[in-house]
Simulated scan of single mutants.
Amino acid sequence: MQHARIRTLSLSRFRSYAAARLQVGAGPVVLTGPNGAGKTNVLEAISFLTPGRGLRRAQLADIGQQEAHSSPLVQDGLHPWAVSAMVDGALGDVRLGTGVENAESTQRRCRVDGEPAGSANAFLDHLKVVWLTPEMDGLFTGPPSDRRRYLDRLVLAVDASHGSRVNALERALRARNRLLEDNGAPRFLDAVEHELADLAIAVSAARVETVARLGAEIATRHDASSPFPFAEIALEGTVERMLASAPAVEVEDRYRALLRDNRARDRAAGRTLEGPHLCDLLVSHGGKHLPAARCSTGEQKSLLIGLTLSHARLVAAMQGVSPVLLLDDVVAYLDSERRAGLFSALTALGAQVWMTGADSSAFSQLEQIEHFTVLPGLVQPA
């Protein structure tokens, strides 16, 4: 099994860092320091070496170093910034870079070995990144949209085209909703719904397949002695139910007919009321057969950690290369047994892992760590 690794990470005008450079070896990377020092900023920088808006889902204007107000490059609140990394990836050594070049930029630029890339999708050929942050602790009790977003990141790690399909689906939905609102001609609605149905089945099928694969991985690797409960997962939604009992070609025709039949209802509602944009990821505590939303806070955290580890193993099995794991402040609320179980699982996985915490003693059970101390605007070897 090949393990993708970041060897050097460089930040320029990123969040709290005017400039920073980390060079790391083979061991787990641990960043410790006081709250608010900028530990999560380092992990966020790595998360931009994948498609999307990073682990904070930030707007571009919020990322550049805010102390840069006096710079002539800054206009209308947009601050140039850059992240680059030397990576030992799926295709060998490569330099990945991304950022906002100037105040007129409306999107971040991406480069692979110094050459422009069309989008961050190009990074997926070299590196996959999986993360777990404290903001995800409410995943099971929050709205379905949070779980769909979480699911789509799971899918994206094994299917590089999924993000583009989801974006195209959202555009098609907006186009249909506008036509309904404006009483658009049936022939225009037919055309939009034809595209929408095609995209809906592609997105749903990818989600269904990933959930099935992840469920099988969880069942195969389930260890009754693990301190992390195993999850039972399923998808709930109109198209997803159709796909469970009929081939995709037939489901596409059925969903297209459903869209046509529901035009009056959807026009009255001001939105499309059936489709993969409304599906939900259902998660239960496997040992108790209890919905995750009804589990204790500690059990929900343990379920999330278990899901993250299972997803990382699935990515490694499907791609032949393990992903880089970003675990932000994960160990702080784990007791010693779960902490030891997490470290043991990470060692067995073999993937490069970056972890943050306020207390360096929380990582005392983890061997051969690459330890960095983080202070405001500064990161240095401990």
Rank of each mutant, 00 (worst) to 15 (best):
L22R: 12
L55M: 15
D93A: 14
D88E: 15
R111K: 01
G38E: 05
E135D: 14
G114Y: 14
S70H: 08
T106D: 07
V100S: 10
N41P: 00
L91K: 10
L91V: 01
A58Q: 09
R53M: 09
S84I: 01
V112A: 05
N35C: 08
T50I: 00
S47M: 07
E44L: 09
N41Q: 06
T40R: 13
L55V: 12
L127R: 08
A90T: 09
V24D: 08
M136F: 00
G89V: 03
Q75C: 07
G118Q: 15
V129Q: 11
S70C: 00
L96Q: 09
T40I: 04
L96K: 05
T133A: 05
D88Q: 14
P116A: 10
E104T: 15
Q65I: 02
Q66W: 08
V87L: 07
R53P: 05
G97M: 11
G36W: 11
L49R: 01
F48Y: 15
A58D: 07
A20N: 11
P51T: 14
G27R: 05
R109W: 05
R15A: 14
G25E: 13
L127H: 06
D93K: 06
A26F: 03
A85D: 05
G38I: 11
V83I: 14
V100Y: 11
D76Q: 14
M136G: 00
G97P: 01
Q75Y: 06
D62H: 03
A82P: 00
V29F: 04
G33H: 08
P116R: 03
T106R: 13
P72W: 06
G77N: 13
L49S: 04
G97I: 03
V129E: 11
V29D: 05
A19G: 08
E104K: 15
G97N: 01
E67M: 01
L127C: 09
M136N: 00
S16G: 13
N102D: 15
G36C: 12
L127D: 09
L22E: 13
W81D: 04
E44P: 06
K128N: 13
P28E: 01
Q23R: 10
L78R: 15
L124R: 01
M86I: 04
K39A: 08
G64C: 03
R15W: 12
M136T: 02
G92L: 03
T98L: 09
I46K: 05
A61Q: 14
G33F: 07
I63K: 02
C110Q: 07
R21F: 03
A103N: 08
G64L: 02
D137N: 08
A85P: 06
M136A: 09
V87P: 09
P51C: 11
T50N: 10
E101Y: 01
V30H: 05
R53W: 05
A20F: 06
G25F: 02
A61N: 12
K39S: 08
H79C: 10
L60H: 01
G99F: 02
A120Q: 12
G114W: 14
T50W: 02
L73Y: 04
V100C: 14
A122L: 04
A82V: 01
E67L: 08
R111C: 01
G92H: 04
A122G: 03
P72L: 10
G89N: 05
G89H: 02
E115M: 13
H126R: 11
G114F: 14
A45H: 06
G25S: 10
G77H: 11
V130Q: 15
